[in-house]
């Protein structure tokens, strides 16, 4: 019986490489959230001289494609410079796995996002962000695309529940079209703060519920 997953996917799912945590990592990032489904954490050790990834580990709370993509992405990134690793695409990861079912794109993209976010986290922590782009409404909106709406499993922007974004003097205000007592309100607030607060020129993030 042909499984929807390739042999390679199943092999990485059965025996994921580089799985676990790095104690005292040079950078880390978490993409996704338990409320919306899949979640990936990526940990990095970086050689500061060569800007090279010397060790990488991942953890996954997700389906087989999520675990397999996390595994392959760590294999692809290990030993690469940060600049090289940044350019690894979802397509490369999927190809290296012998293809992924289209319906599983979302769960596998998370691992690629996780790697990029970890590299960004390294750059932010080590003052390597070359151009300090000031945070604008567009920058915030882009980050909100990585916050899931747990009711649908799609992001906040795509599900059109971001009513308003305001950025002024290091303060970001996000208005979400949900009642404040909604079962996922606290969760969404926490996720938004987690995504926006690390921006270099943001001091405060306020999430309001407008319905």
């Amino acid at each position: 019986m042909p499984l929807p997953y390739s042999e390679k996917v199943m092999e990485h799912f059965r025996n994921p490489r580089n799985v676990g945590r790095i104690e005292d990592p040079d950078a880390k990032a978490v993409e996704g959230s338990p409320a919306c489904g899949d979640m990936v954490a990526v940990y990095l050790k970086v050689d500061p001289e060569a800007q090279r990834i010397t060790d990488i580990k991942f953890e996954s709370y997700g389906c087989a494609s999520n675990i397999a993509t996390g595994s392959i992405i760590t294999e692809l990134a290990k030993g690469k410079t940060l600049e090289e690793a940044k350019k690894i695409t979802w397509k490369e990861a999927a190809d290296a796995l012998g293809g992924l079912p289209p319906i599983k794109t979302h769960c596998s993209v998370l691992a690629v996002d996780g790697l990029r976010a970890a590299i960004q986290n390294y750059e932010e922590r080590h003052g390597l962000v070359k151009e300090r782009v000031p945070t604008t409404v567009e920058v915030v909106r882009k980050r909100l695309k990585h916050v899931m709406n747990p009711m649908t499993g799609l992001d906040l922007v795509r599900t059109k529940i971001v009513r308003d974004i305001e950025v002024s003097d290091g303060k970001v205000r996000v208005a979400i079209d949900l009642p404040a007592d909604h079962q996922f309100a606290a969760n969404i607030r926490e996720e938004i703060i987690e995504k926006i607060e690390p921006l270099w020129d943001v001091d405060e993030v306020v999430v309001e519920f407008t319905e």
Binding site: R14, G37, D38, Y61, G62, C63, A64, N66, I67, C107
Partner: peptide, 27 residues
């Protein structure tokens, strides 16, 4: 802390057939 499709596939490898309500598993 764990996801149903992953549980199901691991159980399948061990020779057990079960079902899950996970979003990842539904069409």
């Amino acid at each position: 802390f764990v996801e149903g499709e992953s549980i199901l596939l691991h159980l399948d490898m061990r020779g057990f057939a079960v079902s899950t309500g996970s979003a990842c598993f539904s069409r």
